[in-house]
Structure formats: C-alpha cells, structure tokens
C-alpha cells in the first residue's frame, strides 16, 4: 500500500509543477463548456417541450463533465504507460517487484485523480458563480449528493479499468494510436460525452445504458443533475459495480495471458 501512496504523491507533485498546463486546460474546458451549453440552449429555445431535462440541469451536467474530464475520460490514459509500450521500456517495468496490473492501475487512477483534483475545484467554483440557468446548480439534496459521490468513485474505477484493457490491447496491435482513437471515440460517445444519453432516441438509450461505457460519466453526472433517481438510479449504480468487477477481472486475465508472451517492440 505504501508503494501506491508514494506513486500518488509523486504524481500529484508532478501535476502541480505544470501549473500553466492546468490553467490552460481550465480555460479550454471553460470555453468548451460554455459553447456546449449555448448550443443546447439554442435547441431548448427552438422547442422547449422536446428537451428531456431542464436547462439548469443541462448546464450542471456540462460543467461537471468539463470539470471531471480528466478523471472520467478514457482519453486521459496514462501517457507514460503508452510511451513505455511504444518505446519498449515496458520490459523494465515488468522487472519491478509489484504486480504489473495493480501498479499500472493505481498509477493510472492516481494520474487521473491528481489531474482532476487540480482542475475541478477552480472550475467548479467558477461554474457555480455563473447565474442560472447557465451555471452549476447545487445538488437537489444531500442524499442525492452522496449517491453522486458513490457513483463518481465507481465511474472512476470503471473508466480506469476500461483504459487498462485498451492499454493491454495495444500490446498486441501494430497501431496504438489507432486503437486509442477508436476506443476514445466509442467510449466518449456512449458515455454521453458528445450528447447526454437522455437526448438519444429512446430505444438506443436503453441499450446504451447497459454498456460498460455508460457506467462511467453518464451515471454520476445524471444523478447530480437530478435526471436519474429512484429505482433506475439504483439499477445503474448496481450495473456500475458489476462492470467494475467484471472489467478488472478481464484486465487481470489479459495481464496473466500477456505476461507469458510479452512482445516488446523496438528494444
């Protein structure tokens, strides 16, 4: 455990050094969020009755999505790990006396969490200061917030597990960049990264909700904005637990198979 905490601290210190990067990312996400909200508002104004959630809820969804991007996007896979696979330095990593999957998993989670921590607090404060209906609203009540927090942790666990599987697949492929782009494209879309799931056509949404991708950002964000509650919420949280266990199991299985025939490129 000590080893893992050391990794986390190192990651956090590294992240802090890149203050300009954090600021740049913040500005970027702020603009992105504002544009997304303005576009949805235009749709809302065109036909309010067809809008599946309230405008303030929509705004909260977008701001949280932006603030937590670093934590919940498959894209924020550990660049270091990818570089290692590509450069062949992965061979050195395999010699370390820590379980490879566990170590990388923790590293990955740590880089996500530290990146998100740095960015989300200022982003959320700014978003909360924006007047309704464009700003981040307070959660409906404490209970909802607790469910949100639980679901957020689960989402981070699931997304990291997905990231690990994608990284493992890149072991075998000739095209890490291609695999990554495909994975990011699919995951982003089905987790509601481009259009929130409530905007999907009903039938498509029902199927999408069962996929592991929707067990990431989709659930906590919709709980917070009040779109998801009651039995449906509990079902989706249970599904998150299922995917967390299942995907980590798949990842470890892949690791076990992988270690037997690691293909080190370059080296």
């Amino acid at each position: 455990m000590k080893k893992y905490i050391a990794f986390f601290r190192l990651r956090f210190a590294m992240g802090l050094q890149y203050r300009a990067a954090a600021l740049g990312g913040l500005v970027c996400q702020f603009f992105w969020g504002a544009m997304a909200i303005l576009a949805f508002k235009a749709f809302h104004d065109t036909d309010p009755s067809a809008f599946p959630m309230s405008l303030p809820a929509m705004s909260s969804y977008i701001w949280l999505q932006q603030a937590l991007l670093h934590l919940l996007s498959v894209m924020s896979m550990d660049g270091e790990l990818m570089d290692m696979i590509q450069s062949g330095n992965v061979a050195y990593e395999l010699c370390r006396p820590v379980g490879v999957y566990n170590m990388w998993y923790i590293k990955n989670l740590a880089s996500r969490a530290s990146g998100a921590l740095l960015r989300c607090i200022p982003a959320l404060i700014v978003a909360a200061l924006i007047p309704a209906p464009f700003g981040l609203m307070a959660p409906p009540d404490v209970i909802t917030f607790l469910w949100f927090a639980l679901s957020l942790v689960l989402a981070a666990v699931v997304v990291t597990a997905i990231g690990m599987i994608v990284a493992m697949i890149t072991f075998h492929t000739v095209s890490p960049r291609g695999v990554r782009l495909i994975a990011v494209g699919i995951a982003d879309f089905f987790s509601g990264g481009i259009v929130p799931l409530p905007f999907f056509p009903e039938a498509v949404r029902r199927v999408t909700e069962l996929l592991p991708f929707s067990a990431t950002a989709n659930v906590p964000l919709r709980i917070y904005s009040g779109d998801l509650h009651g039995g449906e919420m509990l079902f989706l949280i249970a599904l998150q637990v299922f995917w967390a266990v299942a995907l980590i199991a798949v990842g470890r299985l892949l690791e076990w198979k992988e270690l037997k025939n690691v293909v080190v490129q370059g080296g």
């Binding site: 000739v174 960049r177 291609g178 695999v179 495909i182 494209g185």
Partner: peptide, 14 residues
C-alpha cells in the same frame, strides 16, 4: 498499412 487503416478508422470515428 494495417496501422494506417486502424488509425484512419479511429480518426473517422471521432
């Protein structure tokens, strides 16, 4: 080639 077509696919997906 294989890598190229995968990356084209990925880029297209985005």
């Amino acid at each position: 080639k294989a890598s190229f077509f995968m990356t084209v696919t990925g880029s297209f997906l985005t």
